[in-house]
Design a protein around this nucleic acid. Sequence first.
RNA 1: CGGGGUGUGGCGCAGCCCGGUAGCGCACCUGCUUUGGGAGCAGGGGGUCGUGGGUUCAAAUCCCUCCGCCCCGACCA
Length: 538
Amino acid sequence: MPKEGITPRATDYSQWYLDIVRNADLADYAEVVRGCIVFKPTGYALWEAIQRGLDDRIKATGHVNAYFPLLIPKSLLMKEADHVEGFAPEVAEVTRAGGEDLAEPYVIRPTSETIIGYFYAKWVRSWRDLPLLINQWANVMRWELRTRPFLRTTEFLWQEGHTVHADEEDAERETLMILNEVYADFAEKEMAIPVIKGLKTEKEKFAGALRTYALEAMMQDGRALQSGTSHNMGENFARAFNITYTDQNNTVRYACTTSWGVSSRLIGALIMTHSDDEGLVVPPRIAPTQVVVVPIYKSDSEQSTVLEAIERMTGDWKGRLRFRIDDRDNVTPGFKFNEWELKGIPLRVEIGPRDVEKSSVAVARRDIPGKAGKHIVPQDGLTDYLVGLLETIQQGLFDRALRFREEHTRDVTTYAELSEAVEQGFARCYWDGTTEDEQRIQDEMKATIRVIPFDQPDRAGGVCSPVEKRPVRSSLPEPTNPNLYWSGWRPAGIRPKPVHARVRPGRPPSRGLRPPGWHPHRTPEAGQCQRRCECRSR
RNA sequence: CGGGGUGUGGCGCAGCCCGGUAGCGCACCUGCUUUGGGAGCAGGGGGUCGUGGGUUCAAAUCCCUCCGCCCCGACCA
């Protein structure tokens, strides 16, 4: 039975998500700061758990943490041309401080490649300085047109790693290692979110990167959510920021850089992967609280008897279980059952006079909502039982999410099949590798290439292009990138919309609103276009 | 930006057409009875009716202005 105040997923998935966020008390809208949210204590606790899991892995793979400034001189941001083009529309500027206009405006970081690049140029001298492996935990700001709690907000929290390597091969190794051993491992083992690892297309890659790799997860509406990215910048940023080193042969060379990040969007992924119509579901390993104990009593004497029993019962829990005892006296047990279910605590232990007498407890597991997930167990050996049950739940959640994804993924060989499949979830198909086809699919069926997966199934199924119907092309090239995943093209219900020009006077127009002839390389700050690009046609 | 909707205690809404100084549910506070799946009764506190202006003896209500938010269109690093 759905909880009060929660729209069932089948009715309106988007509203369901918002209801979960609100009812589980994860976040509040920062209504006075458009597009921002307040991470409330329960929501922030999830972020802290994510931070812990990632930070451990980042450090275990040889990185150290540091912190760079929030403000970036605008000229620095402008240095890498593709990067500028990618970010210009969503950057917020500080033009006035200390009571006067600044000689040069600052931008509030949308990401830190540029300011970190500036310092790396100073710090890197010799091949002995490499690799340089630094991570920072930070907030960033991107002026998004349409926001949703955790999934896309104007300000968000993330971790951004920035590394410098002697050559592209080493940078590539780093980029892939982070994706596999840090991000995917964390997502699957701790958050129980199955992910597809792969390469982004040219069209979808990070502005200024050579290659972008990403994790894609399937939400319960069948749509993809990008849940982590890792970029190999090659020499692009090193050239823009002059990050050079002297190699063993006394030759000065450009270094290669990488950057990689995951954000508080993961909280959104967590919600949309596991939760149900009863509320939030949090996998045990990531859960700030794993077990909640609800005492049941009528009289004062029963109350003290039960609370004493709880004291004894939880004596050896510390260090093995993260738990809390809900001894509030102003709400009924039934209310507590519903509330903790809503908040996604993996296990609930109920204990009343009858249990004290029989030395038992009632254990309810959140992954099976309602009374169906409740059973009576002896207090004897309870701690081991609970620890084991948490692991069972953890694995069960992962298996359930994986099964869901597999049930909503189809291999397709024709255009019609592709068109149908992307309505339900992911489709896997061949692609001839052209942006032209990619764009056409996007235009015609609102689907995007999420990723070219590392895991390539046997190609015995045949070679087909979903756009084989294209009339002009007589023979399709042998696909170089077979088996792509497509999905409902917009990430999990996010629909950007153009913003009124008045909102940010002087701001570069967002894509789609650019007047004819507009080009980022030709903004007043950048002067004439310095690059050999399509814009010279104008 | 184009089209549509909406703004009233913390939240969700009614009242507006037909002007007379604001009401309901939830939440909150107090007390008593309750407590194994969202307790009951009684009492109580809380609102510049988005903003500015106009009409009127009198405006939540009628007229104009501006602002916010939501939905659809336009499609993302």
